[in-house]
Design a protein around this nucleic acid. Structure first.
Lengths: 212, 212
DNA sequence: GTCAATGGCGAATGTGGTTCGCTTTTAATG
DNA sequence: CATTAAAAGCGAACCACATTCGCCATTGAC
């Protein structure tokens, strides 16, 4: 009983947005430019998306899932636990969080500028963290589960931190100390990873008591 | 030979900005509101600051330094290494990064939306990281220096991550899994902290070789 | 073929950072 | 004390952008 949304127009807009976010980041990309690139008027963009931030999530979501899945393949192909962890951390922090095309920066900018009215489901973040946990668990099948989960969570926080600092552009993500620091921590941790958390905590307490 | 900047006007503007950033965050605060609160015109604000982001840094810088110094005092008052580390991590992530008045969110928003033209000196971040390193080193005087530095850096990244997510969550930072995860990692790490990094990395390699 | 829902779009709206000229003040100078 | 000019102070633009409005064109259902 009425005109129907053009699948092609939707694709045009989405692809234009993807291309522009990649080149100029979230803040550097305007609805006008997206519309022009898609061959339509700015106002028409709002027929397909209800806000700029919704476009950003629509573009970022499949990209991140793709990159994480790709990373899983690369990690699984490694033969040693050490290689698996190196590949995981480097892939996550350098290739994805430090992505020079600015896609992760797009997310960070979107998140930082989101208003309360921009309802954002944390489903993507949860999904990502679970995948990271899976990779870590497969690399260290005998690791204490609580520790492995902690590692995954800290990796996620570091992911955000690296992406945020990417905007300061003083240093390339590849040269950043972050990767080395995380790997240092991981490798230091590994040798004690098979013990339960409580025992380690008690041990520290005892160490301290003995030395003071 | 000319009119001189009023110290009082400068203070008015800075205090108004501080109060408004605290209430409404960086993005929710406008130059107009700052000017009105300071009892002057929006354009006159630019006599004292060259941009909005410069105001944000001017307000955030002394606040963060104060909080970090205060935290140092609290950490130094702890008697055991475990207490010192708990106090450090909780203070950093809950009290400062998770600050409910939104000051750290102000910084994150400012950083995320900064343009290349907004020259930002990373001096404050360096200073903070050095202070954190100092606290960690004092808690673990026998720790491997490279590992301690890695810990400090990862803590900084987690700081950014927590602050960023603060904008998304309805939940309190205190309930966040971040603190527990970092402490888990720290305490697990501690028992092996006295060995040099290279030995640990080799050990992991050998572990893997032996188990495969 | 008629109808009405909806796509499409040019124009307008609102907001907010920043800049422009003009006026006023004031510190140095003679 | 009068003169001067640099700089504060400020109202009015300017500009960039996200978003909305109102009108026209299209199209699918009956």
């Amino acid at each position: 009983m009425a005109r129907v949304k053009s699948e092609k127009m939707f694709e045009n807009i989405t692809l234009a947005a993807e291309s522009l976010f990649e080149k100029h980041g979230y803040i550097g990309t305007t609805i006008s430019r997206i519309a022009k690139e898609a061959g339509t008027a700015p106002s028409n963009v709002y027929v397909y998306y209800s806000s700029k931030i919704e476009i950003a999530f629509a573009v970022f979501d499949p990209w991140l899932r793709e990159r994480i899945s790709e990373l899983e393949t690369r990690v699984a192909a490694c033969t040693s636990a050490r290689d698996q962890l190196s590949t995981l951390v480097e892939g996550l922090l350098i290739d994805i969080a430090g992505d020079e095309t600015g896609r992760t920066l797009t997310l960070v900018q979107a998140l930082a500028t989101a208003r309360k009215s921009d309802e954002y489901s944390p489903a993507l973040l949860h999904w990502t963290e679970e995948r990271i946990l899976g990779m870590i668990s497969r690399a260290l099948p005998d690791g204490d589960p609580a520790l492995l989960r902690s590692l995954a969570h800290v990796l996620m926080l570091a992911f955000d931190g690296v992406a945020l600092r990417q905007n300061l552009r003083r240093t390339n993500a590849g040269e950043d100390y972050a990767v080395q620091s995380i790997l240092n921590l991981l490798f230091f941790t590994l040798s004690s990873a098979r013990a339960p958390a409580q025992r380690r905590m008690d041990e520290i307490g005892r160490d301290e008591a003995a030395s003071s």
